[in-house]
Nucleic acid binder design. Structure first.
Lengths: 200, 200
DNA sequence: AACACTACTGACAAAAATGTCAATAAACAG
DNA sequence: CTGTTTATTGACATTTTTGTCAGTAGTGTT
């Protein structure tokens, strides 16, 4: 009846794999249960390793938090920079680009990351995001003929709204008896109409 | 040299005063330093009482959290219900009403409360808000001639955006090199333009 | 096969946070 | 002034969470 009699009693990973595994577990905990569930024991359990293993790779639970913030911010910056706006089709193209940006922030993970950073006062960590946003504003949106200044305003507005939608859209929608995606729909409609009003 | 020789060495309050004092301290902690600073010792220190005093009045620190949520939600509901829309002046009146609603949620305290509830999964507590929102949608906005359905959409959108602004507006604005109030300005502009587009 | 390296772990120690309790003192009634 | 009530508190106990350490077990090398 012995199954896998020669299976290793421990999984041994490279340090990079281990760190990645632990951070992935922590991220899903953050998204599913909030920051208060990022305790050492919870993270270790979710990652399927012993408490001591987490400390072996990160030194402290606070270091896990920091690494998680940085990892999620890096992901966010990547998706911001992936915004592409073809130079030919004018208005629809802008809409698509802004929608990509919106999507990047409206992701449950990103919205919760932002809330976490804000509530813990770690806003300073997001300076990386600033550079990404400015690059998109200047190089990509401006190339379509919108002044960088106005582009930055649009992005500021989009991101604020996107995070709001990502954090509260679903629960707020169902709270007042609407389908969960309603807030998202309305937000995108308003945002696109706003582009037309300002730049159209 | 003895100053106030017969001053009481302890302050003795009524139970209601004590609870109010503690909750006020907790609220300012929440707004200034986030939910993770709502520890027993921190709350007691901020309120100027001993740890045991907090427990005497609330039984547990979790009960303090619950009471704080309920108090802040009640305040929020009050300010929602204070939305008044005079029946005569049509469009500007709608704008003023929506702005009041926006302000109620954009308050730093309310936005942080919402984020706190969301991150801790206590969304269910906000059913009281639902009733307030629906009352405003039906009785007050609808009386100006906008269908309750559309009014609810507008409110959903306003609240989502307002919370986003309240939470991230300032730090996000300064992050990308704008004045801190910029996000708020832009949000209100867009919201009002949206009213005109849909109902004007 | 023997060895070195180190990721991994359980058992334990330390620290932090929460909660208990008996004693104290403010307010008030008689 | 005396007694009763109870909000308040310091000292202590308990629980929770984090961190340490010495030993174990995979993986690659000789």
């Amino acid at each position: 009846m012995s199954i896998n009699s020669n299976a290793p009693s421990r999984i041994r990973r490279t340090p990079e794999e281990s760190r990645a595994n632990i951070l992935a577990a922590a991220e899903s905990l953050l998204v599913a249960h909030g920051p208060q569930s990022l305790r050492l024991a919870d993270v270790a359990k979710a990652a399927g390793v012993a408490n001591a293993t987490v400390l072996h790779h990160f030194g402290s639970i606070a270091a896990v938090h920091q690494a998680l913030m940085e990892r999620m911010i890096a992901d966010l910056v990547d998706s911001i920079l992936s915004v592409e706006i073809p130079a030919d089709a004018p208005l629809e193209a802008r809409a698509v680009g802004l929608k990509t940006l919106f999507d990047a922030f409206e992701t449950r993970g990103a919205a919760r990351l932002a809330a976490w950073l804000e509530l813990t006062g770690e806003t300073g960590r997001m300076t990386v995001v600033r550079e990404a946003v400015q690059e998109v504003a200047q190089k990509k949106i401006a190339s379509v003929g919108i002044p960088a200044d106005m582009a930055e305003d649009m992005i500021l507005l989009s991101v604020t709204l996107a995070v709001g939608v990502g954090l509260f859209g679903r629960s707020l929608g169902t709270l007042i008896g609407k389908p969960p995606e309603r807030a998202r729909e309305l937000a995108l409609q308003m945002l696109l109409a706003n582009i037309q009003r300002l730049a159209g």
